[in-house]
Design a protein around this nucleic acid. Structure first.
Lengths: 415, 415
DNA sequence: GTGAAAGCGCTAACAC
DNA sequence: GTGTTAGCGCTTTCAC
């Protein structure tokens, strides 16, 4: 019986006509491929790819043995000889397991869904990169979804990923929108948030695991670096702090600036603070600010992004001042400009790459926890206290990632 | 019998003990969720999600009817009353089809795999964005894979995507590596290449569909724009043309510069051409070039990227020249600097977003073709002559996407 | 129009 | 250790 089946294409109670029709609908070349590539062995499923059963037949063993060998489970239940025959058959047939079928059976896809607001945002791209690096380590694959700042699309994408049965979801965002109820109620698939501030209005201090970049610490480090370089009158160029354009990042960076001054025992000089009217200050803001500061005298400047820093440097140079000798400058975000500018600009790298990595490790620990103990309902976030460099678990189980300073010419004073 | 099953959790010949063990391994909370959320109806599969059969039971119809309603196939085979009952049951149960199971059956996943060398590259990110926009239209979803310039990872990722049974694959790359044999032999899943130059050494003019960005046309357009603005002595700042750092992009842009001069009837002035020693000229190259050009006099400048353009502008301004009145400047890539600089820089947008969109449309036509006619083996690329704005099918079926010029202050002369 | 039943390709419990 | 077998949740033929 076994042997008979191996050479019969139309068995399994399916007649030839039926098979042709279905193949046409599904994979097109299925039949031809089976004829051509599989001809010698005569074994190829109707999809054009050999199946585990084909391997079993080829090796002369049972599907069970094939499964055990390939998944590595129950290694004690398969003899060395069997294993060898299976592996050889796999090699001979060029067999690759069908992951869809496997997922249907195991309810695990080995994929992590990543939801983000905008793939074109350089910082988010870095986060994805960080996630992907860790994913590779853990053997996960990444399914990416762009929501383009559209709340409706966010909801939809979340559902889609759940339908796809991804093992976990990471939601990366730069901004907040109003209604977080979807996220709070989300119980279908383990979820980790990156920089997704939950509306303050919601009273429930949710146990939803979150990772955030510590803007405040980054700004503080930048300013303290300037202090270290000998600066005593340090100016600040920042984004709007109140009104519609205000952001958490802006507030925190301003706070970090003041923190640093306080820590260094330097006075806060309002005349050296320039708050842009925009949420994202640019070249002009930097230049304008310098123009104004020049009257008061200053020897250091921290700008909340690299464009403003570049603008400031441009204005300083045109004014005949030297950077960093007369004024040392530090930017923020460590974007391409920072390294491409001349002089190269010292900049705070937000470390979003690390944020991605941390988030995935967090997710991993949730998945692990889930597999081991049924009773742990949701808050596996506690487990993640074991964070690595630059990340620390704070109140509410929110993990904060520390930005790191990349020192370049614009602030490096010899000695 | 139907009714009995609906309230019996341990039917299907599976005893209670077995079910518990499996649930623990698979989904963790499955059992609890079934108790809580599904308690009122008593119907929930062991994964915690209602299944199509649950819907059928709830609606009092057969699974067939549910399937027909939900997939929209055979609309004539389902009565209005049945449809209504099904939809209501779906709503009541919060049913969502399991895409994995569906894929296993239909051999279509509705997902497109995108392979790229580096997500952090801003231009590639734009391509992904372009792909994703069209994907949304077509109802496809995108699975992204980063290969980090690692040929081995590329091979692996290609296989992984094929194993996942994505419906098609788009391979986006900025650079070339040696061995393209994998790509040429690739027959498993429909594949489209973006900017993936095949090694010249391979003799077979493969029918593999490809999309490329027409660097030459972009450069030409930039220079012709300068001519239009009244420039007659137009300088060029470009990347290395020969040796290890040389790239197709560099050669083509240089060619486009010369094309434009020729077309405008302007002489080629070697003293106004600065070829950087690097494959990616920067700020300094722009500044240096200007320094040299000043001796000869010039009224326009095209730089192959925005950083070089910014450097050139910086040097010009410091030299007391006005931009664009004395010298009009155009950059390339339309990166963030271009719009953030002051003055804002006119730049050639490589239109990678469109390249992504075109690639997916190409893929779509291949998939369509496959479904309709079995005999079309591979080269559905011919079909894609029906391209849209900015794209044209060239020799070898390679589709070229035209970059487009974004005009800003640095080159806009009033009148 | 409706329902029963047969699998897609894989895993794993259970009997040998 | 090995093979038989029963499904995962869905689609779709075929008989009513």
């Amino acid at each position: 019986m076994e042997d008979l089946r191996a050479f019969d294409h139309t068995e399994d109670g399916m007649d030839a006509r039926t098979e042709t029709v279905r193949d046409r609908n599904w994979k097109g070349q299925g039949v031809e491929q089976a004829m051509i590539s599989g001809g010698q062995r005569g074994v190829r499923s109707r999809t054009g790819r050999p199946t585990a059963r084909d391997v079993a037949r080829e090796a002369g063993v049972s599907p069970t043995a094939v499964s055990f060998v390939l998944t590595g489970t129950h290694p004690e239940k398969v003899s060395a000889a069997t294993r060898k025959r299976v592996l050889e058959a796999v090699e001979r047939l060029g067999y690759r397991p069908n992951r869809v079928a496997r997922s249907l059976r195991t309810h695990r896809t080995g994929a992590i869904g990543v939801l983000l607001t905008d793939i074109k945002h350089p910082l988010l791209a870095r986060t994805v990169s960080g996630i992907q690096q860790v994913a590779r380590q853990y053997g996960y694959h990444v399914v990416l979804h762009n929501t383009s700042f559209n709340p409706e699309a966010e909801r939809e994408a979340l559902q889609f990923l759940a339908d796809l049965l991804v093992d976990g979801i990471i939601f990366v965002s730069t901004s907040t929108w109003g209604d977080d109820s979807v996220l709070l109620e989300w119980t279908q698939t383990p979820l980790v948030l990156i920089n997704r501030a939950l509306s303050e209005s919601i009273p429930v201090p949710s146990s939803l695991p979150r990772v955030r970049v510590d803007y405040r610490a980054g700004a503080k480090e930048a300013v303290l670096h300037l202090v270290e370089q000998g600066c005593r009158r340090i100016a600040y160029v920042g984004a709007v702090l109140t009104g519609p354009g205000a952001s958490l990042a802006a507030t925190e960076r301003y706070g970090g600036y003041r923190d640093a001054l306080a820590e260094a025992g330097l006075p806060y000089l309002p005349e050296l603070v320039h708050i842009s009217s925009s949420s994202r200050p640019g070249w002009d803001d930097g230049a304008e600010a310098v123009e104004r500061f020049l009257a008061y005298g200053f020897d250091g400047l921290y700008a909340v992004n690299d464009y403003a820093a570049a603008g400031a440097i441009g204005r300083l140079l045109r004014g005949g001042l030297r950077v960093p000798q007369d004024v040392a400058v530090v930017g923020n975000d460590n974007t391409e400009v920072a390294s491409h500018h001349s002089p190269q600009i010292t900049s705070v790298d937000p470390n979003w790459e690390e944020a991605g990595a941390v988030a995935l490790r967090l997710l991993q620990s949730m998945l692990d926890g889930k597999e081991k103990a049924c009773e742990s309902t949701r808050g596996a976030s506690g487990e993640a206290g074991t964070t690595r460099d630059g990340a620390s678990t704070g109140r509410d189980g929110v993990v904060a990632v520390r930005p790191k300073l990349v020192v370049r010419e614009s602030s490096r004073r010899v000695g």
